[in-house]
Nucleic acid binder design. Sequence first.
DNA 1: ACTTACGTTTACGTAAACGTAAAGCAATTG
DNA 2: CAATTGCTTTACGTTTACGTAAACGTAAGT
Lengths: 130, 130
Amino acid sequence: MSKRYTIRELAEEFDVTTRALRFYEEKGLLQPARSKQTRTYSAADRTRLKLILRGKRLGLTLEESSDIIRMYDPEAGNRQQLETLLSKIRDKRAQLREQQKDLELMLLDLRDAEERCLQALATEPKRANG
Amino acid sequence: MSKRYTIRELAEEFDVTTRALRFYEEKGLLQPARSKQTRTYSAADRTRLKLILRGKRLGLTLEESSDIIRMYDPEAGNRQQLETLLSKIRDKRAQLREQQKDLELMLLDLRDAEERCLQALATEPKRANG
DNA sequence: ACTTACGTTTACGTAAACGTAAAGCAATTG
DNA sequence: CAATTGCTTTACGTTTACGTAAACGTAAGT
């Protein structure tokens, strides 16, 4: 019997509300068991939560994260299903690589912005107003 | 007089609705002029729109994109303001670098997923069901 | 037994980012 | 000149991702 978590433990660890955890469950993203009416989360639930939150930081919707989570295990035995899955995985990877480009562009822009800002600070050293 | 765009031109070029463009204007992100009641967008508006959409692809809210756009020009002459701006720029850069890490992790995970998927396809070559 | 601290469900509320329909000018086109 | 086309504003609707309040169950401590 591996480690199990209460709703509060998970909520505090990842700095989310218990409401959010119940919401994720309602959406099918988490599947805690019940020990006498109270939810009890498995290590797998904890991992899924991590993936959900990572997805959020990348701007994914819960449904997109849900899709990705399903991609992680080729449970689907059928060849047809496997190829569909493979295709989805590749699509998502391609999309993430596009996102990588956007990210680098924005980082470059901000690097320039920082530079210009430093310049402005250098040229106008210590007066109150220009 | 540099190039100007109608609302439809911009909408089609970037594949957004005119409603979205008016919405961005309402939120202060775009400032088209009016030529006889009709909106006319400048090259600067077009650039801002690009930044907005890039921000969206990265999961930023419109307000965050708005902030970033303001970071691009150190119009603020005041030293105090410049340092505040600099600080914001650095915060956002740091945040984007965190996002970069998340992105790479997710790409790695999907690489594994693809691998497992290919394995599954290899071990169960051409049957209909397992 | 009472309080405290957690848990539960149900349900309405909210912010963001538009979608969509309605209704009215304004120019052009058959 | 009526109709179409494209712009405009106004305004209500929708989806996502929860927040928040109400009302209740339950186990632990005093």
